[in-house]
Amino acid sequence: MIYSKKYTTLTRDELKEKVSQHMSDKRFQHVLRVEKKALELAKRYDVDLEKASIAALTHDYAKERPDEEMIGLIKSEGFDLDLINYGNAIWHGIVGSFLVKTELGINDEDILTAIELHTTGACEMSELAKVIYVADYVEEGRQFPVVVKARELANDNLDLAVSFETKHTLLYLINQQSRIYPKTLETYNQWVAQ
């Protein structure tokens, strides 16, 4: 894919190189699989392919940053301090969006919001945000009991895929007795609860 320079001054290869410098090879392979799935879904649901590629390649940009760095950014950049209570599973989307903007110079709000919401979802999500949320969940390297059903839904109906993912993510968190970020509950109430 050749980028238009509309959303980033980087080429796709340059963006891949910058992203790969901030993560393990295992994580980077996941990122590439998410991009592949995001592009498939973007084609199916008429979402801008370049935006889907950029958001997918950068969605985990902050995933392997040290906790101290992330906590420091939460404090210094005016994020809600309650974020500190939820750990990297939540931080890496919200703070990661900020880092993609400041370090990579990507300013498109649709892309940044898709990165921010890729783990929590939201009541209101753009088609791009839904694509990244779902692609991250169903990429071909994922192996968990309901992933086949999730993939089927992703190919049939993006909104139903968002609902299914949200429900099963919440069930997983409850079974793990994990803290649940309030936006995840809001997403559940909007997309799943009747």
Rank of each mutant, 00 (worst) to 15 (best):
G93W: 14
D110V: 11
A52G: 05
S76W: 12
T102G: 01
E69C: 03
V148L: 14
S76R: 14
K130I: 10
E69Y: 04
L83C: 07
D82V: 03
R142F: 10
K130G: 04
R151W: 08
E124S: 14
E116L: 11
F144V: 12
W91K: 01
A114G: 05
S53G: 10
I115L: 09
L57E: 03
T113P: 02
R44D: 06
I94M: 09
L112E: 03
K149E: 15
P145N: 10
N107M: 09
L83E: 09
A52W: 05
A56D: 02
T119E: 07
F79S: 11
L39C: 14
R65T: 01
H30E: 12
Y137M: 14
V31F: 00
G96I: 01
E64G: 02
G141Q: 11
L112Q: 03
H92W: 06
A135I: 02
M70Y: 05
E64K: 01
H59K: 06
V34A: 01
K101T: 03
L49R: 12
R44I: 04
R151K: 15
R65V: 00
E40A: 08
L117Q: 07
H118E: 07
M125P: 00
Q21F: 13
S76I: 09
L73Y: 03
S97I: 02
Y45Q: 03
L104P: 12
G72A: 10
I54K: 04
I94A: 00
A62N: 06
E69D: 13
I90V: 15
D108F: 12
L128K: 03
L112H: 02
G87T: 03
A62T: 05
V138C: 08
A135N: 12
A129K: 07
A129D: 03
L81I: 14
A135L: 09
A114M: 04
V31D: 08
G121I: 03
I71R: 12
K130L: 13
G72D: 11
D136W: 07
D108V: 05
R33K: 15
Q21S: 15
E77N: 08
R65K: 11
V100T: 07
N85E: 15
I90N: 01
T119Y: 13
R27E: 13
D60Y: 05
G121S: 05
A122V: 06
D60K: 04
E127M: 14
H118L: 06
I94V: 15
E103W: 04
L39D: 09
D67A: 14
D110N: 14
K36T: 11
A62L: 08
D82M: 09
A62E: 09
D110Q: 12
K26C: 02
V134P: 03
H118Y: 05
K149F: 10
L128H: 07
A122K: 11
D108R: 03
L41E: 00
G87F: 06
L32M: 13
I132S: 09
D108L: 02
L81V: 14
V34I: 13
A122E: 12
K149A: 13
L117K: 12
N107H: 13
G141L: 13
A89H: 15
T119I: 12
V148G: 08
V95Y: 11
L41R: 01
M23H: 10
Q143K: 15
D25C: 08
N88D: 10
L41I: 11
V100R: 06
F79P: 13
M23W: 13
E64C: 01
H59F: 05
R33S: 14
I71M: 02
L81Y: 02
